[in-house]
Amino acid sequence: MKRRQFIYRTSMTTAGMLLGGGILSARSNPQRYKLTLLHTNDVHSRLDPFPMDGTRLQGLGGVARRAALVRKIRREEPNVLLVDAGDMLQGTPYFNLFGGEPEFTSMSAMGYDAGVLGNHDFDGGLELLDRQWHLLDFPILNANYDVRDTVLDGRVGDRIILERGPIRIGLFGVGIELAGLVPEKLYGGVRYQDPVVVATRMARQLKREGCHLVICLSHLGYRYDSERISDVQLAQSSEDIDIIIGGHTHTFLDQPDVVSNRLGEPVYIGQVGWAGVTLGRMDIWFEKNYRSKCITCSPELIADTFD
């Protein structure tokens, strides 16, 4: 891994446009507003950094570092969102010994805004999740899991709307099919529903509720060779999702995949491997104008390469 720090290789033109509004925006004079979206996925109980033992991810990760970094970014940026795309639990002895307590407490201390349950979050069973739920002070969103017949009834949400200044951000979550992946005795009673159908409904509803940005937290997986539903497929079949923060496949995407939805509009899919060795950051500038479409929109991601 050669990547060192957070480096933007921003061209002068781009930087000028971001900072001063640039030529295009000078003409239409829109107001600007910036949102900073931070994301993790598949942290798998990796509370401490990997040991320095010569393995590929040695020395990386750790929640105490993430907490300090997130706090620093929150000092620098006015509007920060921090989200996770599932499999918070299972993978180090912390989970075997403490059943998720330090994982949930750490995430709450870092001020996560929302998360979604991944398949391994069921590894301790529903009763364990129920017992530890009070440690979560952020919402867990699995819109396509019907949990009404389980102890998680009333705990798992489907969507939330967060307001950051004038911007309304809608978030919802979708989870992977548990049958065949998780032993039934651990998730029994949770009914899986088609994530495309549910996501379409959720995203439309959030747009109707006045959201300027709709983010899907997904534990479906980035992409598959087979027809299995993935983030790429979900993005292609969607109309109202702007960003998918994904997980499950432990995919290291150095930058978001930009996929066209049914209307030909871009959907950004982000995923940052696993174990919390990377923190993803997307800065989104909004503009305010009288059009139904924006004027200074750049369909491509800008300035995201690393040394």
């Binding site: 971001l18 990386l60 907490a67 330090p102 060795v277 479409k293 750049s298």
Partner: peptide, 29 residues
């Protein structure tokens, strides 16, 4: 007047030893 997404910029932080640790969370752990 409505708000639209205009520009996206993306980057990642590698969580290596050059970063500081949060002392309260370290103490908790």
């Amino acid at each position: 007047m409505t708000w639209h997404e205009a520009t996206h910029q993306y980057g990642q932080y590698q969580m290596d030893a050059s970063l500081e640790s949060d002392s309260a969370l370290s103490a908790y752990l």
